[in-house]
């Protein structure tokens, strides 16, 4: 996989898939000052996370700025099989979006 801001692990155990994802993102609240210049650092954080299994949405999340820098996310879902494609897409408040896909193991 090319350089990507998202690391995903999706593992099937019994009939439940546990997804763990790490996203590289500054998650700036817009309330912090740059100590050198004294200027406010503009807000820059992820607002939406979309998770799909074989194209079907399983979870979506809305985030505020108080989710930590380089956010971690984990959740579980049923009804998936080994080899299914799991896709995670994020969109931040600047409109930037990125996604990554993994096969469920």
């Amino acid at each position: 996989m090319a350089k990507n801001s998202i690391k995903i692990r999706a593992k099937l155990k019994g009939d439940v898939v546990t997804v763990k994802a790490l996203i590289k993102h500054p998650m700036e609240t817009g309330l912090r000052k740059n100590k050198k210049t004294g200027k406010m650092i503009p807000a820059h954080f992820i607002q939406n996370i979309m998770c799909e299994n074989n194209g079907k949405s399983v979870m979506n999340a809305e985030w505020g700025a108080s989710v930590s820098k380089n956010p971690y996310l984990s959740f579980k879902f049923k009804g998936s099989n080994k080899g299914d494609t799991f896709k995670l897409t994020w969109t931040d408040n600047t409109g930037k979006t990125e996604s990554n896909e993994v096969k469920i193991k």
């Binding site: 439940v16 998650m27 609240t29 309330l31 299994n53 079907k56 949405s57 399983v58 979870m59 979506n60 999340a61 809305e62 985030w63 505020g64 700025a65 108080s66 989710v67 930590s68 820098k69 956010p71 971690y72 996310l73 984990s74 959740f75 579980k76 879902f77 049923k78 009804g79 998936s80």
Partner: peptide, 29 residues
Amino acid sequence: YTEKNGTPLTAVFNFGDMTEAYASTRIKM
């Protein structure tokens, strides 16, 4: 929600019908 943060609402996880009621993340306080 983080009650005493400037903006308390931290994250909302919306589940589909296949999803277990479980969510884990890291937040700033």
